[in-house]
Simulated scan of single mutants.
Amino acid sequence: MSKVSNSSIAKLSVISNFKEITKMRLSLSVVFSSIAGYLLGADEVNFYTLLLLAFGGYFMVGASNAYNQIIERDLDALMERTKNRPIPSGSMSVQSAFILATVFTVLGITVLYIINPQTAMFGAISIFLYTSAYTPLKTKTPLSVFVGAIPGAIPFMLGWVAATDDFGIEPGTLFMLQFFWQFPHFWAIGWFLHDDYQKAGFNMLPTGKRDKGTAVQTILYTVWTILVSIIPVFGFTGELKLTIVGAVVVFAIGLVMLYYAIQLFKKKTTIAARQLMLASVLYITLVQIIYVLDKFIR
C-alpha cells in the first residue's frame, strides 16, 4: 500500500510541478488568444494547423515561464505569492527546469516552423524578449512592463500570422489591442501585490507607488485599449473587420473595464485594483470571442 501511495504522491508532485513551472493557466490563456487570432485570419479553418498552433504556443509560453522562474528563483523565495513555486520550494531542481525549458523551446520553434517560418520567428522573439529583457528589467525600472507587453501582445497576432503567413495591418492591430490592454492589467496586479513585489525589489508601477499618477496612467491606457478595439469598424484594417453591432458590444465591454479603472483612481485600494484585474481578464477574453463571432455570423 505504501509503495502505491508513494507512487501516486510522486505522480501528483510531477503534475503539480509541471503546471507551476509552465504556469498552465497563463499558458492556456495565451493559447486561447492565439487560436482566436487564427480564426480571425483563416479563410478556412485547418484543424491540423490549429492543433500545431495550440501545442507550439504552449511550448513557447511554458519555456518562457520556466526560464523566468530559473532566473528569479532567489527572488521568488522572498515573496509570499511565489515562495512555494517548484524551484524555491525545492521540489524541482534548476537542472530539471532548464532541461524542460530547453526541450520546450526546441519543440515550440519546431512546431511553429511547421506552420510557417514567420510564426516560428515571432514565437522565438517572444521567448527572447521575455527572458532576456523583461525578466532582468523587473528589478531595475517600471519600464519593464512596457518591454514585457511586447512578448505579451504577440500571441493574438501570432494566430493571424499562422493562418495567413503574412504580417500586415491586421495582425498589427491585434498586437496593439493586446499591447495596450496589458498596462491596466499588470498595473492592477502590481498595485494589489505591491508590498509583496517590494520584498523582491520589483518595480512594476509606473510611478513606483500606489498613487494618483499610477491610477491616472491606468485610466489613459484603458482608454487607448478601448479606442484600438473599435478601429476595425472604420474599415482601416484590411481584412480585419468589425460590424457596427460588434463594435458597440466591444465598446460597451471596454466601458466596464474603464469603470473599474476609474474606481481605482477614486478609491486607491487593493480591492479596487483586484476588481480591475478581474475586469481586465474578462474584457480581453470577451473581446476576442466577440471578434471571432462577429466574423462568422456577419
Rank of each mutant, 00 (worst) to 15 (best):
I219A: 02
I244Q: 07
P88H: 03
T225E: 01
T22S: 10
L227F: 13
T218W: 10
I99L: 13
F234K: 00
T164P: 10
G201R: 05
A63P: 13
I114L: 11
I150R: 04
K241Y: 01
S34K: 09
G57S: 12
S93H: 02
F32I: 06
Y259C: 01
G148P: 11
V31G: 03
S64R: 05
E44K: 11
F202S: 05
G190A: 15
L52M: 14
F128W: 13
A273H: 06
G152K: 07
V147Q: 06
F59Q: 03
T22R: 03
M204S: 08
G235K: 08
R274Y: 11
S64M: 08
Y130F: 12
L282D: 00
W160T: 13
I15W: 12
S132T: 12
D294E: 12
G254T: 07
I297D: 06
N17M: 05
I230T: 04
L52Y: 13
L227M: 14
Y38W: 02
G190L: 11
P142C: 09
Y58T: 08
Y38I: 06
Q118Y: 14
V106Y: 06
K209Q: 11
S229L: 10
M257T: 14
P171E: 08
G172H: 09
T139K: 15
Q178R: 00
L78P: 04
L107G: 05
Q182W: 09
S229D: 11
A124E: 07
T119E: 10
M79G: 03
F167Y: 13
S2H: 11
V111G: 00
L240V: 03
L258D: 09
K11H: 13
D195G: 02
A10E: 14
F128G: 06
Q95R: 15
I71L: 10
V292G: 06
F251Q: 03
I99H: 01
S229T: 14
L240Y: 10
T139L: 05
G41M: 11
S132P: 00
I289Q: 02
A247E: 00
T102K: 07
F122M: 13
I35E: 08
L53E: 10
V233W: 05
F265Y: 15
K241H: 12
V61Q: 11
G57V: 08
S280E: 09
K241D: 09
G41P: 00
F265L: 14
W187A: 03
L75Q: 12
Q263P: 00
I289N: 01
F236N: 02
W224V: 15
V281M: 14
R85E: 03
I230S: 04
V106K: 00
Y113E: 06
F156H: 01
G168W: 02
I297G: 08
A273Y: 06
A124T: 09
K266D: 10
T141V: 05
T119Q: 08
T222G: 14
L255Q: 11
V30E: 04
V103E: 05
F122W: 14
I35H: 02
G108I: 09
T285R: 02
F59E: 00
L100I: 14
F167W: 10
Y67D: 01
L51I: 11
I115Q: 05
R81I: 04
Q275E: 15
D43M: 06
I290D: 08
V30R: 03
T225Y: 12
G213I: 07
G201S: 06
I9Q: 12
G246W: 09
S34W: 01
K267E: 15
Y283Q: 13
A261E: 12
M157S: 15
A153G: 09
Q198T: 03
E72T: 06
S2G: 12
A200C: 11
L26W: 03
